[in-house]
């Protein structure tokens, strides 16, 4: 058991957890996006409501969902530990002059970007997830079965200008977080090899632009059209 403690309290082990939880969250984002895109279907929200009902009741999904919450909390917890330790490592006197020339901005500001994502997560969970699970939801009936009408709740929030603005801004933060984070997690796992670097970087850049852009497009679309 000792070696496990050594591993997970070492700098390398902490980064290992960051990378694994980060990659899981990336997968989660992809699945979440596929669900959200159904909001754009011109069916008065039926497809989205059916999908949301399935996601919030299926027992298997509930287990994955618990895991997802755990991984987000772990990701955040370790990011706080790392950020504090990394600041301490610099010492009491800090540099008077620093230059940003030797690294990209997002790589130096993962903490700030992550905090924006966290603020978003809290707002987002409160408005949608908590309402869906504990709130008093309006109901709709399709083919004789009753569903909670999460679509109209989403549509209601996506008509509020500040909410749409916040949503789009936070998706940009997710994009920047992943612009560095996606490829970074593979480097942390030790996967840095000329045979794979090209594809990892390509996938990372594409994912970090396309996925947040599509997420952001949904409220923009519902707000203006």
């Amino acid at each position: 058991m000792n070696w496990l403690i050594t591993l997970f309290t070492s700098t390398l082990g902490r980064k290992l957890l960051m990378a694994l939880t980060g990659l899981f969250l990336i997968l989660f984002l992809a699945v979440h996006l596929i669900g959200n895109l159904q909001l754009l279907k011109d069916d008065g929200g039926r497809a989205f409501n059916v999908y949301a009902e399935f996601m919030s009741t299926n027992p298997l999904i509930q287990i994955v969902s618990k895991g997802n919450f755990f991984f987000i909390l772990l990701h955040i917890f370790i990011s706080i530990v790392l950020t504090i330790k990394n600041r301490q490592a610099r010492g009491t006197d800090r540099y008077a002059v620093t230059s940003g020339k030797s690294s990209i901005w997002s790589s130096r500001n993962m903490g700030i970007l992550g905090t924006i994502v966290l603020v978003f997560l809290v707002v987002h969970l409160k408005h949608f997830w908590a309402e869906m699970h504990f709130g008093d939801m309006p109901k709709v009936t399709y083919d004789g079965t009753e569903y909670r009408d999460i679509y109209s709740l989403v549509a209601q929030w996506f008509a509020v200008p500040w909410y749409v603005a916040l949503y789009v801004f936070c998706m940009a933060a997710v994009g920047f977080h992943l612009w560095h984070g996606f490829a970074s997690s593979f480097q942390t796992l030790g996967l840095n090899h000329p045979k794979y670097n090209g594809i990892i970087n390509f996938l990372g850049k594409t994912f970090s632009v396309v996925v947040p852009a599509l997420f952001a497009w949904i409220p923009i679309n519902m707000f203006f059209f």
Binding site: Q88, S102, S103, I104, R108, M110, H180, L191, N192
Partner: peptide
Amino acid sequence: FGACTNTKACEAECPKGISVANIARMN
């Protein structure tokens, strides 16, 4: 010493051009 965030500033500043591929190997 701190933990690596993979900013790659080290590689860009290393006078001997040591590559961060070594960090992946160490991991």
